[in-house]
């Protein structure tokens, strides 16, 4: 070992410094990640209420059984599922296409990357208020759609109709994050060696065949990563839906799970029930995160 050159005992001294370097983070995670998740789990078995002076009673699984029977909770699960599926699939497909298109250009690559990425740096609240005005009955949304569909004067009720308001939240979210995932795909694409494409083209493959048989299989790890990352993000969505309901949109169609947790805890003061919902959300996301780790481990590609 090269360290045998050094004084004896230096390994021990090093080990001590290693511990000193990581101790602040250990304390932090214990207090602000592990302790809260265990408390959430613990509290979900009590009928704890905010601002209540009575000590909370242990009620076993009643919070969970209540939720499983509650139409409001299932509505939130539905809203979250619809939003997630309706958002992440178009995001993955569109950003994959955009990344390939950008990569195929010889000029303006940087311009397109900057332009597409720019909404991702804005705060979600700003994004939501811009789109609140666009989706106003007199706003750009109606003007644009009426121009495309040639239906002057029709109000498409972006925020009033229960189906349209769900689509509206998806558009807003997609608009914000499309560029972000496009960049990740571009990074994935640039790791595929140019010689692989050249070999295929020389062998007589068309651009389309090159994409289908070379790019797509080699890009699979990135595609899986983007899918799961965007899915996890969509499951946690809060700001857009919150702002839309503040701006006058109906609550029920877009009452996603985080919004429901927030309202149950802060408006209804039912901490126990909110904790049970948090735990359910935690397990749903745990499954997807586990999937991501598994996939990112097993999908090593060699060229």
């Amino acid at each position: 070992m090269k360290l045998s050159l050094l004084k004896p005992g230096i390994e021990q001294k090093k080990a001590r410094w290693g511990l000193i370097f990581i101790i602040p983070s250990i304390i932090f995670f214990s207090l602000f990640s592990f302790y809260p998740i265990f408390t959430a789990f613990y509290t979900s078995f009590f009928n704890k209420k905010l601002l209540s002076l009575k000590p909370p009673d242990f009620i076993g699984l009643q919070n969970y059984t209540y939720l499983l029977k509650s139409p409001d909770f299932w509505n939130s699960m539905r809203a979250t599922a619809v939003f997630t599926i309706g958002t992440f699939i178009p995001i993955v497909i569109l950003s994959l296409i955009l990344a390939n298109f950008i990569i195929s250009r010889k000029r303006f690559q940087w311009f397109f990357q900057m332009a597409y990425y720019s909404p991702a740096v804005l705060s979600s609240v700003v994004v939501a208020v811009i789109w609140l005005l666009i989706f106003d009955p007199r706003g750009l949304g109606n003007q644009f759609l009426n121009f495309i569909l040639n239906t002057p004067g029709v109000d498409h009720k972006f925020l009033a109709n229960s189906v349209m308001v769900q689509i509206s939240t998806m558009v807003v979210y997609g608009w914000k994050y499309l560029g972000y995932f496009t960049i990740i795909f571009i990074v994935g694409l640039t790791t595929i060696p140019q010689s692989t494409h050249e070999a295929a083209l020389i062998d007589g493959a068309s651009k389309w065949q090159d994409f289908l048989y070379i790019t797509l299989p080699l890009l699979k790890p990135t595609t899986v990563l983007v899918s799961i990352m965007s899915m996890l993000q969509c499951l946690k969505t809060f700001s857009t839906q919150y702002l839309f309901t503040q701006g006058g949109a109906p609550m029920a169609p877009i009452n996603v799970i985080t919004l429901n947790i927030y309202h149950t805890a802060i408006r209804d003061h039912r901490i126990g029930r909110a904790s049970a919902m948090s735990i359910i959300l935690f397990f749903i996301m745990l499954i997807f995160t586990w999937l991501q780790f598994r996939v990112s481990h097993s999908e090593e590609v060699s060229y």
């Binding site: 809260p36 996890l232 809060f238 959300l281 935690f282 996301m285």
Partner: peptide
């Protein structure tokens, strides 16, 4: 794997 949204109430 612990999303902030799941621990915000105890926090």
């Amino acid at each position: 794997m612990i999303p902030f949204e799941a621990i915000m109430i105890p926090l």
